Simulated assay, not measured.
Amino acid sequence: MKNSPSNPESVETAAKSPPGSQTLLRGLDVLDAVVDGPIALADLAAKLGLTRSTTHRLANALIDRRYLTFVPRLGYQFGPKLLELGFLAQRQADVVQIARPHIEDLALATEDTVHLGILDGERALYLDKIPGRRRVEISSRVGDRQPLTATGLGKALLLDDAPTRWQSLFDGDRIAGAPEADYGIWTERMNGYVAAGRAYDLEENQDQIRCVAAPIRDASGRIVAAISVSSAAQYMADDRMESLTAEVCATATAISRDLGWTDETPRPKVRK
């Protein structure tokens, strides 16, 4: 006979959810049930109100994805994937919190839209956005994942990467739908960006939108985030982009210092 559920709310939620999401919700219930430490299969099944076979199947799936581990004679406990995600979530929260006042000041001074983002796999993930005061529509949102090689912010995140990696990222972005571009011209510009310590978006990701971007470094000297100032091309002539460089780089440096970076921090080796 099936055990009685110990969490009626989660069962009720699962019952109201689309069929495809019920397994996901049950998997999350497993993680919630392990929060107090190692737990044996029989106890876990009883806590969830599920059969042992169903509980075993869910737990094994989470073990395969490294969300759980199994310790003989003790039972199931949190796995290394949750530690990785916890550190990542903490780092993201820290970067957003630390960068917020700086990018607010930058948006106020420039009257343009300012973004903060990080590397997320092979995309740029926008963590924060301060809208500009001009009547310019920037079609970006917090949580958007944008192509690295077509955005100023994305290119700023790549300034420490080896040129040998640029090609695969460039090709992958085009396959994924990024606007077409000439790789030779793109590479020449990137080499200039590396030398200057900042990057531009010259209407490569969104028509009539340009931006100036700069990397943010942590105490180890690694690039952990980037910021960009974006506006309509009519407000972003070449000379203004050049003049904005100092302001954007200064803001990125101020955020980096708050994250522990100093002028004496050695530059990391080029990422392969």
Rank of each mutant, 00 (worst) to 15 (best):
Asn7Thr: 08
Thr13Pro: 14
Thr13Phe: 15
Lys16Ser: 10
Leu28Gly: 13
Leu31Phe: 07
Asp32Ile: 00
Ala33Cys: 12
Val35Phe: 12
Ala42Met: 06
Ala42Val: 05
Thr55Gln: 14
His56Thr: 12
Asp64Ser: 12
Arg65Met: 01
Arg65Ala: 03
Gly75Pro: 10
Tyr76Ser: 13
Pro80Cys: 11
Lys81His: 03
Gly86Thr: 13
Ala89Ser: 15
Ala89Pro: 15
Gln92Thr: 12
Asp94Ser: 06
Val95Asn: 06
Arg100Phe: 12
His102Thr: 10
Asp120Glu: 10
Glu122Trp: 04
Lys129Leu: 14
Val142Gly: 13
Gly143Trp: 01
Pro147Arg: 02
Ala150Tyr: 05
Gly154Gln: 13
Asp161Ile: 07
Thr164Gly: 08
Arg165Met: 08
Trp166Ile: 11
Arg174Val: 14
Arg174Cys: 08
Ile175Cys: 14
Ala176Ile: 09
Gly177Ala: 06
Glu180Thr: 00
Ile185Gly: 01
Trp186His: 01
Arg189Thr: 10
Gly192Gln: 06
Val194Asn: 04
Ala196Phe: 09
Gly197Thr: 11
Glu204Asp: 06
Gln206Met: 12
Ala213Ser: 14
Pro215Asn: 02
Ile216Ser: 02
Asp218Thr: 00
Asp218Pro: 02
Ala219Ile: 00
Val224Trp: 06
Ala226Ser: 15
Val229Gln: 00
Ala232Ser: 10
Asp239Trp: 10
Ala246Tyr: 11
Thr251Lys: 04
Thr251Asp: 05
Ala252Phe: 10
Ser256Ala: 06
Thr262Leu: 10
Thr265Asp: 11
Pro266Met: 09
Pro266Ala: 03
